[in-house]
Design a protein around this nucleic acid. Structure first.
Length: 497
RNA sequence: GGCGCGGUACCCAAGUGGUAAGGGAGAGGUCUGCAAAACCUUUAUGCGGGAGUUCGAUUCUCCCCCGCGCCUCCA
């Protein structure tokens, strides 16, 4: 099944065809590590994760490069405020990001790179651009001569005449030859980090790192470049200009952009106080898997309206899928096999695959799987689900989960693994992060599996003796610890709230 | 000013020129020692408003209203 995907460059949905038959090369703009990533960032990362998972699902080998921008005005400012070197400061947030990534079940890109490890490569590219007449130097800084690159604007469809001198243009870059020109290399400033290079002392401009690192690891022309919509202009437009001016070859074949997320219908902003990090949400008691589910459930090209109610709804939807999975694995069914049900499982699989192939329509993929769940549940309730049907349903559900990755209730285990359990309910946004330090005090500690099982056994014993008072006592105690008991036909089942 | 996106039930959210997926919540039911949970059923003559094209429009065209994004750092 060919993936059809919206290519910003083409301005329409296109069939995806990689350069190399069974291999896909992807570059994704990662994070500027000046602080914790927020859920808006994660919306984009979940989209990119769904993309790479679906490509792998289709049998492609994926080589994904993700960059981490570890030098820019904000990182410099914040590192200085924290009294740390740029490296020490950004290391902390990179570590925090890696933990978040695992909490959200984002597959690790094959190659994760940081800008400051590629200064030499950037210098070389800028030198090439200068030799070809695309770059010029002014007062220690290098700029890209936009008017020399005739394709400028082809991605964002921007009208260059719309950029007017003196309006909406960084005032301290007055020394550019043309207001449209963008900086490749910034001359060193007093009190700021800089690198001594053949270009002179300074630090890289924002766009150059992505051109350099993507081409270094993926070649001068590669398949997919993705990021948030806000990057279309100027970031990606400038990347194209730098890269294609230097190589004379097409830079990227498919440009993919994820829409933003808003909170309660409003843009996230510090002044509104609605910027949430993953840790903020965990501290409020929300589960990483529910967050992933919510972020994945809205197709990537639509604005996602993030609300706590929506997160709660996501949690419940996800629970329904897990319940069905539980029945499939634990409930006893009569021997035999229903051909009709085999068809239900097969068509569920086909439908969700088709939905994803259609520009990653995750909402439709969900609908497909829920339809299968309902039919399966109905058959089970009527005694018409057979042992022989187990495998096909588990197969479809498992395949679906290769993309969505939310079936397993592993939140508690992961939070423990990263020390994000017990203690206070809220961690201030302003605190300097120590991923394994104060971040430990986040979730209310709950009982471990053995303790829970033991209490349940005790309750079963009480119930057999018709000592319901004691049984109910245990049930209530567990509930207070966040453990919900469910008496099913197959015995007592528990889950964490 | 330029470019672009969106308005579908109480909430989230697909989709189509042929008569509205799915989830959550609510209601009813099944199950249960009770309860919860779970499961089933059910919930838009309607898709922002108006006009047009058409045998037929939520889906196409035009106008209007509302919300939003980008054009400057931003996922």
């Amino acid at each position: 099944m060919t993936l059809r995907i919206y290519n910003t460059l083409a301005g329409r949905v296109e069939d995806f065809q990689p350069i190399e038959d069974k291999k896909v090369r992807i570059y994704t703009c990662g994070l500027t590590v000046y602080g914790y990533a927020h859920i808006g960032n994660y919306r984009t990362f979940v989209f990119q994760d769904v993309l790479r998972r679906f490509l792998r699902y289709q049998g492609y080998e994926v080589v994904q490069v993700m960059n981490l921008t570890d030098v820019d005005d904000k990182t410099i400012r914040n590192a200085k405020a924290a009294g740390l070197s740029l490296r020490d400061y950004t290391d902390r947030y990179i570590e925090a990001f890696d933990i978040d990534r695992q909490l959200l079940s984002l597959e690790k890109p094959e190659i994760v790179v940081r800008a400051t490890d590629h200064i030499d490569d950037m210098v070389k590219l800028i030198q090439t651009l200068e030799q070809k007449g695309y770059a010029y130097k002014r007062e220690g800084s290098y700029y890209f001569r936009v008017e020399k690159f005739s394709d400028y604007g082809k991605l964002s469809k921007i009208d260059l005449s719309g950029i007017r001198a003196g309006v909406r243009v960084d005032a301290d870059e007055y020394d550019k030859a043309n207001v449209r020109d963008f900086v490749l290399w910034k001359a060193a400033k007093e009190g700021e980090p800089f690198w001594d290079t053949p270009l002179g002392p300074g630090r890289p401009g924002w766009h150059i790192e992505c051109s350099v690192m993507s081409m270094k690891y993926l070649g001068e022309t590669f398949d997919i470049h993705s990021g948030g919509v806000d990057l279309v202009f100027p970031h990606h437009e400038n990347e194209i200009a730098q890269s294609e001016a230097a190589t004379g070859k097409p830079f990227v074949r498919y440009w993919l952009h994820g829409e933003h997320l808003v909170v309660n219908g409003e843009k996230m902003s510090k002044s509104l106080g609605n910027v949430y990090t993953l840790r903020d949400l965990i501290a409020k008691g929300f589960r990483p898997t529910a967050i992933r589910y919510l972020l994945a459930s809205v197709p990537y090209r639509s604005i996602l309206n993030f609300t706590f109610e929506g997160l709660q709804q996501a949690r419940h939807s996800m629970e329904r899928l897990r319940n069905f999975h539980y029945r499939l694995t634990k409930e006893a069914f009569p021997a035999g096999k229903s051909e009709d049900l085999e068809q239900v499982a097969a068509s569920g699989r086909r439908s969700f695959e088709e939905a994803l192939a259609d520009n990653l329509n995750t909402a439709e993929a969900l609908a497909a799987i829920f339809e299968m769940v309902r039919e399966g549940n109905t058959a089970m309730d009527q005694g018409k689900f057979f042992d022989g049907n187990r495998e096909a349903f588990l197969d479809t559900l498992g395949r679906w989960d290769q993309i969505f990755a939310v079936l397993e209730d592993n939140d508690q285990a992961k939070l423990r693994q990263f020390g994000l359990v017990k203690g206070e309910q809220k961690v201030s946004l302003e605190e300097v992060p120590v991923p394994n330090g104060e971040a430990k005090k986040m979730l209310v500690e709950t009982l471990n599996d053995e303790e829970i099982e033991k209490r349940i056994a005790e309750r079963e014993e009480a119930r057999r003796g018709r000592d319901f008072k004691h049984a109910d006592q245990i049930r209530n105690d567990l509930l207070k610890s966040g453990i919900l008991l469910e008496d099913t036909k197959a015995g007592a089942r528990w889950k964490r709230m």
